[in-house]
Design a protein around this nucleic acid. Structure first.
Lengths: 129, 129
DNA sequence: TCTCTAATTTGACAGATATCTATGTACGAG
DNA sequence: CTCGTACATAGATATCTGTCAAATTAGAGA
C-alpha cells in the first residue's frame, strides 16, 4: 500500500507461489498507479470528447477555437464547454484566450503516455520487462 | 453521416474555408468512428479494470483465473465478475472455463488498436497524414 | 445424490455523468 | 458606456455506473 513512487512500468520480475494458478512474470499496476491513470482514459472515454480531441488535433497549427468545435456537433455550447473542461482538467488539452476567442490545443505528452501504456511493450499488454 | 466505412486514420488533406479560425490539416474522427471507439476506452477507464488487465497480462502464460484476480482487491467476487464482464464485452479480454476455474486472457489486437489511435502518428494526435 | 467451492446473475441503491436552460463574464465595436 | 458576441458557470434532471447482498449455475469429489 505504499503510494510514494509511481513508475509507469516496473522492471522487477517477481514470482509469487501462493496463487492457485500461474505466477507473475511482470509487475502489474498497483492501486496508486491505476488510480492515477484511470481518469486519463475516462476523459477520452466519450464519443464527443474523442471527436473534440481529433478536431483540435486536425486543425492547422494544432489548435482550434471553441466556435469551430461547437458547430461540429448537435449539442449546445455549454455542453461542449463542459467536455472541453473535462479534457483540460485531465491535462489532455490546454487553452488560451486571444481577444474574443478561446483556443485549445493538445498536450501530446499525456497522449503519448497513454499510448505507451497500451502498447505491446508495456506491462499492461504483458511485456516481460 | 454515412456510416459504412470506418478507417481508423484517413489520409485526405482537406481544407475548409468557413471557420473563423484555422482550417483542417487532417481528417478528424467522424461520429460513427467515435461512437465505436469510445466504449473501448470506457472499458479501461476504471482503476479496478486497469489493474485487472495488468494482473492478467502479468501472469505467466498471459492468463489468470478469477480466484487470482479476486484476492488482489478489497472487493467482492460479484464486483470483480462485473468488471471482467465489462472488459470482455468490450473485446479486450476473452475467457474459458477449465474444470472448476475460469481463465481470462488479453486480446492484444484491441489493445494495440487503442494504442495506435493515441500514438503521435495518428490523426488524434495531429499527424498530418 | 449430496455437498463444497468457483464463478456469475439479479436486484437494489448511492454516487457520477451528460445534457439542457438560464445566468454570468469577458472582450470588441460603436 | 452600451450593446452584441463568445464562452463559461450554475442548477436541474434523467441516465449510467460501481458496489454489495442474495440467489443461481457449474463442476469436483465423496
Amino acid at each position: 500500500m505504499s503510494k510514494q513512487e509511481l513508475p509507469i512500468v516496473d522492471v522487477g520480475v517477481q514470482v509469487s507461489a501462493e496463487a492457485c494458478c500461474a505466477p507473475l512474470v511482470c509487475e502489474p499496476l498497483n492501486e496508486a498507479e491505476a488510480t492515477e491513470l484511470a481518469p486519463l482514459f475516462k476523459a477520452i472515454a466519450d464519443p464527443v470528447r474523442l471527436r473534440l480531441l481529433s478536431l483540435i488535433a486536425c486543425h492547422e497549427g494544432g489548435e482550434a477555437c471553441v466556435c469551430d468545435l461547437t458547430v461540429a456537433f448537435d449539442l449546445t455550447a455549454p455542453t461542449i464547454s463542459h467536455h472541453l473542461k473535462v479534457l483540460k482538467q485531465a491535462g489532455l488539452i490546454d487553452s488560451e484566450r486571444r481577444g474574443t476567442w478561446v483556443y485549445y490545443w493538445i498536450n501530446p505528452n499525456v497522449l503519448a503516455r497513454m499510448s505507451a501504456l497500451l502498447s505491446p511493450t508495456s506491462a499492461l499488454a504483458g511485456a516481460p520487462a
